[in-house]
Design a protein around this nucleic acid. Structure first.
Lengths: 245, 245
DNA sequence: GTGCGCACGTTACAGCTTGTTACTTAGCCG
DNA sequence: CGGCTAAGTAACAAGCTGTAACGTGCGCAC
């Protein structure tokens, strides 16, 4: 889903063509429609990312259509109308429109609003993969994934490097499960460079584990959390709790 | 689902207790069972991550039980048996066992196999979040997410730093969508440090964008792909195709 | 138990990456 | 055209990260 598909609903041919062409020029796919039936057909037939809906469609009211669409769809809707009084705008928002633009409008402005709405709605769905905003607790420690802060039971704050953070996250996500070096490396996006000699994947993970231990283990010589599974890899051998926020 | 729950099925009390205690000592929850009914009860009543199944259960054959379990369950099963001849092992695997251990066995070995099986099966479900193994194409360029390699239309290979790679990925995942600096920063796991003066978030992203441009744009002065949206952020203004492998 | 071998722990170091700062350049408004 | 703000760019220093080399301890065979 790369190029946004915008349904342009207006019964005035000229206006429809103007909008369609303009949107085309700016890298979107514009689908013209004049009646509610055509709208329905497009919605059933394929993906629609945004609807530009004229308020006055012959004898039908765009407001009604908008209201109906909103009952079973959550495609964003921008209302377009010659009626620009405040109470008329309010009506638009009342039936669930995401934005309300008065005719005549500046095409650039329309584009900006279209982008804004698309941006808003895409973000909330599959855009930039949602960040982990959880907090983890293990054995008195807390790790706040949102602010990347680890805090010891004593309250002392520990700052972890990027890699250390990543490692900790992988471990927290897989407590009690032995992870091989290869798995850890994969999760850390290490391009699996085979070591020069038969070591397959150097000792980078070992060193990284050592560094993390130095920071979170009371006695790195005798690790409590980040234990090694000889011949296998490493385990986070402690129960982990996750909270939201 | 942290601590593995292992169902130990054996009609010999001593053997059952031995195994149960041993498994307990090693951080698992062992659930004893002697008959097929008890097995069924456990499977219905709660989570079971692995079944250790003795082949000779009174007059019932563990093989039959295994076959029946396999019809509607995919809980991993390790067969345990005094019968160690090859054809007997084959029978075990034939009815769907994941492993087959001969009695008398070394407890440590049992543990190792248990872990191995758990590891195998857990991995295939929710373990370490699957890596992105796609290849992206845009305007003649290819980017292989698996090997972190970008290749120019000319065939020249470009090496990207970690951050640059991450930025490129974010952009590839959101083509044609303007991303604010804040969004990019969030996706890159930047701990949103507010800049010293009112810049809110320094110019780190700007610089990073510049560096990526220097590598992938023909003429960084006039970017084709990674365009800036003045007052907003940056867009990857080109169509992107994704292939698997 | 004793010795050997291998896997892991640890340290040091060099190279690269990365954020900052400061300055330059470009777009936008009147 | 002039002023303003945003973005591009270069240089730098700090810090991170992987490699290599060496130390240590566990497991296994005898």
């Amino acid at each position: 889903m790369t190029i946004p598909r915008i349904l342009v609903v207006d019964d005035d041919i000229e206006m429809r063509q103007m909008m369609t062409q303009f949107l085309h020029k700016h890298g979107t796919i514009a689908l013209p429609a004049a009646t509610e039936e055509e709208v329905a057909a497009h919605l059933e037939g394929g993906r629609v990312d945004l609807i530009l809906l004229d308020v006055m469609l012959g004898d039908e009211s765009g407001l009604d259509i908008c209201g109906r669409l909103r009952q079973d769809q959550d495609v964003p809707i921008i209302m377009v109308s010659a009626l620009s009084a405040d109470h008329q705008r309010m009506e638009g928002y009342a039936v669930g429109a995401d934005d309300y633009i008065a005719k005549p409008f500046n095409p650039e402005l329309l584009l900006a609003r279209v982008k804004a709405v698309l941006h808003r709605t895409r973000r909330s769905s599959s855009l930039v993969h949602r960040r982990n905003t959880k907090t983890f607790t293990f054995a008195g420690w807390t790790y706040d994934a949102k602010h990347n802060e680890a805090r010891a039971p004593s309250g002392v704050q520990v700052s972890l490097s990027r890699r250390e953070t990543a490692l900790l996250r992988v471990l927290l996500a897989n407590p009690h499960i032995p992870l091989t070096r290869e798995e850890i490396a994969a999760a850390l996006d290490v391009t699996g460079e085979a070591g020069p000699q038969g070591d397959g994947l150097g000792r980078a993970i070992d060193v990284l584990v050592g560094r993390l231990r130095a920071k979170i283990e009371v006695d790195p010589k005798h690790p409590l959390f980040l234990r090694t599974e000889r011949g296998v890899g490493y385990v986070f051998a402690v129960d982990v709790m996750e909270h939201d926020r």
